[in-house]
Design a binder for these strands. Structure first.
Lengths: 344, 344
DNA sequence: ATGAAGGTTTGAAACGTTTACATTGGCGGA
DNA sequence: TCCGCCAATGTAAACGTTTCAAACCTTCAT
C-alpha cells in the first residue's frame, strides 16, 4: 500500500480487468457509461495516477518534444520557448528543455540526451545549421525536427526564421538613409551563431549598395553586456563611427549603454539599431529601432510544423517569415562628428 | 532491423547476456575491461541508444525534475530557469518545463501532468503559496518540491526567496530619503502573485515609518506594458505623485516609459524604482534602481536544495537570500512638482 | 583430488502500460 | 431449439530496462 496505485489496483478495486481500466482511460466511448463510472470511482478512491512512463515504453510515440536553445537569458529565446511551451501544454505534449550556451558540443550532448528520452521530435536553435553533425544525426535517425531562427542553406530541412541578411540590410539601409556613412556592426561571434554571420552579410551588402567601402566589425560574446571597451576604438578613433548596427537587440541595448559611457548621445551623436524585436526594446529610451521578428509566433509555428512532421503530414521545408522595422528613436539623422567622445 | 536496437540486440551481438550489457552501462567498473570493450563495440556498431523510459519504468526514481513558472516572458523567471536547467543538465537530470501564466488552475494542471511523469521533484513559482491546493497535493503525495520566489508563511515547506516585504521597504525608503512624499506603487494583481502583495506590504510599512498616510496603489496585469493610462491619474491628478515603486522591474521599465509619455522626466520629475534586478535594468537610461535578488543563483540553489530533498538528506525549510539595492539613476532628489504632465 | 573462495556471468522476474486476440453471455432469427 | 452475432470484458504478451539470486568458471589451499 505504500507505493503508488497502479492500473492493476484499480482493476482489482473495481472488479474489472486491467484492459477495461485502460479502455476507460484511453477510449471512454468504447465502454458503457456504467462501467466507466465504476472505474472512475475506483481511480478516485485509490488516488490513481497513470504512469506515463509505462505508456511511453509500450507505445511507439512518447508525446514528448525536445527543445534546445542557446540560452534563456536572451528574451528572444525565452519568448520563443514560451510560445512553444504554451501550445505544447495545450496539446498535452511534454516539453523537455535544454540550453546549449552557444556551444556545439553541448548541442550534441543535449540532443543525444533527448534522443535517449525518445522524444517524438525536436525544435532547435543551433550555433551553425550548415554542416552540422547534429543535423546529420537527426536526419540519419529520421527524427522529425525543426530549426528555429536558423536559416540553413539546404532547403529540404525544416526551419522557421526570418531573412536574417535582409533584416540587417533593412536596418542598415535605414541608417544610411539618415545620412550616416561611417558604420560599424557589433555581432556575436560567428562560430556561435550563423545568424550573426548572415546578418553581417546583410550589413555589408547594404554598405556596398550605398557605395561605402569601409566595413567595421567587432565580434563579441553574446552575453557580453559591457561594450564600452569593444566600441571605444570605433566611436572615438579615426573612424568616428556614427552608426552602430547590432546583430541582436540585447547587444544593441548594451551598445547604447556603451555610447553613453563614452559621452555620446543616442541618437544625437550615434545611431544604434538592433535585430530581433524583443519587447523591452520598445519600452526604453530612446526606443530601440530594430528589425522585428514575430518571436513568440515563430515558436508556435515551429511546434505546429513539428507536429505535422511527426504525423507525417508535412514535408521538411524552410519557411521565411516577414520582419519589419520598428519605429524607434535610436536612429537619428547624421549631425556631424563634432562632439565625439567626451570621456574615454 | 527497422526499429531501434535494444539492449537485447547488443547482448546478442556481443555474445553476452543482457544483464552484462546493463552492467557495462551502469557500473563499468564492475566489469572486466575486456568485456566492456566488446560490449561498447557492439553498441557502437549497432548505434545503440539506451531507452531511458525503460529504465524509468523499472527504477524508483526517474532523474527528472519538473519546473513550473508563471511565464518565461519575464526575464526573472527565464533567468532562474536558465540556472536550474544548466545545473540539471550538468547532473544528468531531465527538466520538464511548464508555465502557468499566473493561473492557479493551470498550476494544478501542470503539476498534475508532471506527477504523471513521475518526476522526482518539483520547483515551482506559485501565484499564491499559502492555502494552495497544489502544495497540499504535493505534501500529501510526499513529492519533494521547492518553491522559488514564493515566500510562504509556513516555515516547514522548502522555499528559496528574498524577503519580499523588506525589498520593497528598502527601495521605498531610498525614495523617501530623497525627499519624495507622494508615492505610489504599481503592482501586479495580488491574486496572481503573493510576492506582489508582500511587496505592497513592505511599501506600506515604509510609508508608515515615514509618517506618510497616503498609500496609492494601482494593480495591473503582469504582462501589462502600457502603463500610460493606469499611471495617468496618479501622476497628473491632485496627488502629483513623484515616486513610483513597482513590484517588478518589468513594470518599472513600463512605468518609466509611461512617465515620459506624460512628459515627465525620470528621475528629474518622477523617481521610479523596481524590484527583481533583471539585467537589462542596468543597461537602460536612466539605469534602473532596483532591489536586486540573485536570480540565477536562486534557481541553482533551488535545484541543489531539491536534490537534497530527493536524496532525503535535507529537511524542507524556507531560505531567505539577501537582496541589495542597485546604484541606479532612476531615483533622484525631490525637486517639487512644477513641471508636471505636459501632455496627457 | 577436493572443496572453498571469489570474480564473472546469466536467467528470469519485475516495472505499468497497451493491445491483439480470446472469451463470455445475451439476443434475435431461422 | 440452435446458431451466429455483437457488445463487453478478459488474458496474456509485449515494450526495454534493472537487479536479485543462482550458476559458472578459475584458482588455490588443503
Amino acid at each position: 500500500m505504500s507505493s503508488k496505485p497502479t492500473m492493476r489496483d484499480v482493476a482489482r478495486k473495481s472488479g474489472l480487468s486491467i484492459a477495461t481500466v485502460s479502455r476507460v482511460i484511453n477510449f471512454p466511448d468504447q465502454v458503457p457509461a456504467e462501467t466507466a463510472k465504476v472505474v472512475t470511482a475506483a481511480m478516485a478512491y485509490l488516488n490513481y495516477r497513470p504512469n506515463i512512463n509505462g505508456r511511453r515504453l509500450k507505445m511507439t510515440h512518447t508525446r514528448t518534444v525536445g527543445v534546445v536553445v542557446p540560452t534563456l537569458a536572451n528574451p528572444v529565446f525565452a519568448t520563443a520557448v514560451q510560445g512553444i511551451e504554451q501550445d505544447a501544454n495545450a496539446k498535452g505534449l511534454t516539453v523537455l528543455l535544454t540550453s546549449s550556451n552557444y556551444d556545439p558540443e553541448r548541442e550534441m550532448g543535449a540532443v543525444s540526451a533527448l534522443l535517449n528520452n525518445r522524444v517524438d521530435g525536436l525544435i532547435l536553435t543551433l550555433a551553425n545549421a550548415d554542416n552540422n553533425p547534429v543535423v546529420d544525426l537527426l536526419l540519419a535517425e529520421k527524427i522529425p525536427f525543426v530549426l528555429l531562427f536558423n536559416q540553413p542553406s539546404r532547403a529540404d530541412i525544416a526551419a522557421i526564421s526570418v531573412d536574417n541578411a535582409q533584416s540587417a540590410y533593412d536596418i542598415t539601409t535605414a541608417m544610411i538613409a539618415k545620412g550616416h556613412r561611417s558604420l560599424a556592426m557589433v555581432a556575436g561571434h560567428f562560430e556561435s551563431s550563423d545568424r550573426s554571420r548572415q546578418r553581417y552579410d546583410g550589413f555589408c551588402r547594404a554598405l556596398d549598395d550605398a557605395g561605402i567601402p569601409q566595413k567595421n566589425l567587432v565580434q563579441v560574446r553574446f552575453d557580453e553586456a559591457d561594450l564600452v571597451g569593444p566600441l571605444g576604438a570605433l566611436l572615438c578613433g579615426p573612424e568616428k563611427v556614427t552608426g552602430v548596427v547590432c546583430s541582436t537587440d540585447m547587444l544593441a541595448i548594451a551598445a547604447m549603454n556603451a555610447c553613453r559611457a563614452h559621452g555620446l548621445s543616442v541618437p544625437d551623436d550615434v545611431s544604434v539599431g538592433g535585430i530581433d524585436g524583443i519587447s523591452v526594446g520598445g519600452l526604453i529610451t530612446p526606443k530601440l529601432c530594430s528589425a522585428v521578428q514575430p518571436t513568440q509566433e515563430m515558436g508556435r509555428q515551429a511546434l505546429a510544423f513539428l507536429r505535422g512532421l511527426i504525423k507525417g503530414q508535412a514535408n521538411p521545408q524552410s519557411l521565411l517569415l516577414p520582419h519589419h522595422l520598428s519605429a524607434g528613436e535610436s536612429i537619428g539623422s547624421y549631425r556631424g562628428t563634432d562632439q565625439h567622445c567626451s570621456s574615454t
